[in-house]
Design a protein around this nucleic acid. Structure first.
Length: 440
RNA sequence: CGGGGAGUGGCGCAGCCUGGUAGCGCAUCUGUUUUGGGAACAGAGGGUCGCAGGUUCGAAUCCUGUCUCCCCGACCA
């Protein structure tokens, strides 16, 4: 992509409304634009990041055996009346009427729709277990949205729902999702800790939040710092006991958010030198809710002995749009965003310092074409603006690798290759730059 | 929902107290000189001062109402 034909409205100063660093940088880097409180347009750079996160989540869901569907944003009110949540949800639910004065709502989540969908198409226990997921925009009319897309009213969420015949099987589904989440966050390049969470009315131990450690996080996390270095599980074992053992191992390291933090247990189990207290942003939440919606929605299947059974279910959420902000919170410096390679809007930024000089432009275009041909996504800054602005913008939008090409490059045959995160630069020939950027 | 603050060109702000027909910096456009880390000079375009009433010869400014946005707290992916 050539910047002269793209849209990246960068700002030198942050709008005064933005307080959180991620909000300021998202606005300054031209990722998003606020349309109303907690409602945003996604600009070209922002949508590319969002899509990359979405795709990683999708791939890991698929790998874990979950199946994608797409549920509507607008849902029937009577579904929610059936579960009892139409009244319970209160003012957070955005209620709307169609032209026939029928009651609808903009979905804040999808337990009702998904449970009824499964009930309509699954008739027998033999068709379970089943995990369905949905990456769709949700709306929660929060009293106080804040920090840009970190906590917006309209947000993109991946929500998955597991359906099993009994609790043992449901636990296995839960464990599969737990592992999938570890894989997702590892692939995103993030330090995310699973912490015990309030299991709600169902009780038990099947509820975890996934916290991204970031200075500006909303909640406190107390953990054994050795929980951070653990590797992603990759493709986990199918055998329930083997999988359970892996989950237990992962959870044997102490990690809790403030509401479930047990000081006595923490101090007895974690040596002082390994105690870590940090702020975290909740980027995922998984929990088991048993037959709650199967019962309330009256969705039953034929069991092994012919009797009708209720399904045992869990919900598994990932805040996809929130992650865009959370990642910026966790990865930036005083110059701007430092994107992890997996989610960067482009892999490489190429700066053409002299777009009006044919020889410089030829060199820049040659590099651009070579990298694009090798499957790399490049953003070529060919705008007719001064050098300083290009350097500043490139650092602000935070592409992982930068190549600077100017008259000097033509004269010396050396291009400057820069790593955004470390700031290190190397002068290399065209061929060496291509080689360095395409070796994987 | 309780408490506080703010709405003036795309962004950041001044002007308001003490009414007299809108200004500064950045950005944008033109020209000249510059030219490898957010250039200088000269010129230009762009705003019914959130909206609606009211007071007044005259309202960005005073009064009333209303809408919107932000911050702190309680709540959430």
């Amino acid at each position: 992509m050539k910047m002269s034909r793209f849209l990246v409205p960068t700002l030198k100063e942050a709008p005064s409304d933005a307080v959180a660093v991620s909000h300021q940088l998202a606005l300054r880097a031209g990722l998003i634009r606020q349309e109303a409180a907690g409602i945003f347009s996604w600009l070209p750079l922002g949508i590319r990041v969002l899509k990359k996160i979405e795709q990683i989540v999708r791939e890991e869901m698929d790998r874990a055996g979950a199946v994608e569907v797409l549920l509507p944003t607008v849902q029937r009110a009577d579904l929610w009346r059936k579960s009892g949540r139409y009244e319970d949800y209160g003012a957070e639910m955005l209620r709307i009427k169609d032209r026939h004065e029928r009651d609808f709502l903009f979905g804040p989540t999808a337990e009702e729709v998904m449970t009824e969908l499964v009930g309509a198409h699954v008739n027998s226990y033999a068709q379970l277990p089943l995990i369905l997921y949905n990456i769709q925009w949700k709306f929660r009319d929060e009293v106080r949205p804040r920090f840009g897309v970190l906590r917006s009213r309209e947000f993109l969420m991946k929500d998955a729902y597991s359906f099993d015949v009994d609790e043992a099987s449901a636990r296995h589904s839960y464990n599969r999702m737990f592992m999938a989440y570890l894989n997702i966050f590892a692939r995103l390049g993030l330090s995310v800790l699973p912490v015990r969470a309030d299991p709600g009315p169902i009780g038990g131990d099947l509820s975890h939040e996934f916290m991204l450690l970031a200075k500006t996080g909303e909640s406190m996390v107390y953990a054994d710092d050795r929980a951070l270095g653990l590797p992603a599980p990759g493709t986990p074992p199918e055998d329930p006991q083997a999988l359970q053992a892996l989950v237990d191992e992962r959870l044997s390291v102490y990690a809790a958010s403030d509401e479930l933090h047990d000081v006595a247990e923490y101090e007895s189990r974690v040596e002082e030198s390994h105690r870590m207290e940090a702020r975290g942003v909740e980027v995922g939440h998984i929990f088991f809710f048993g037959d709650k919606y199967s019962q309330s929605m009256d969705v039953k299947l034929d069991g092994p002995d012919g009797a009708q059974i209720a399904m045992q279910s869990g919900s598994y959420g990932v805040g996809v749009s929130r992650l865009v902000a959370a990642i910026i919170e966790a990865s930036h410096d005083d110059k701007g965003i430092v994107w992890p390679a997996a989610v960067a809007p482009f892999d490489i930024g190429i700066i053409n310092l002299a777009p009006d000089k044919d020889d410089v432009t030829l060199l820049a275009d040659t590099l651009y074409n070579a990298l694009q041909a090798a499957g790399k996504q490049c953003l070529l800054d060919d705008r007719k603006i001064r050098a300083g602005g290009k350097f500043a913008d490139m650092d602000l939008i935070g592409l992982p690798k930068q190549v600077v090409i100017g008259p000097r490059s033509v004269a010396s045959g050396q291009l400057e290759l820069k790593d955004r995160a470390s700031g290190e630069t190397h002068n290399l020939s065209l061929d060496d730059v291509v080689a360095a950027l395409t070796q994987d």
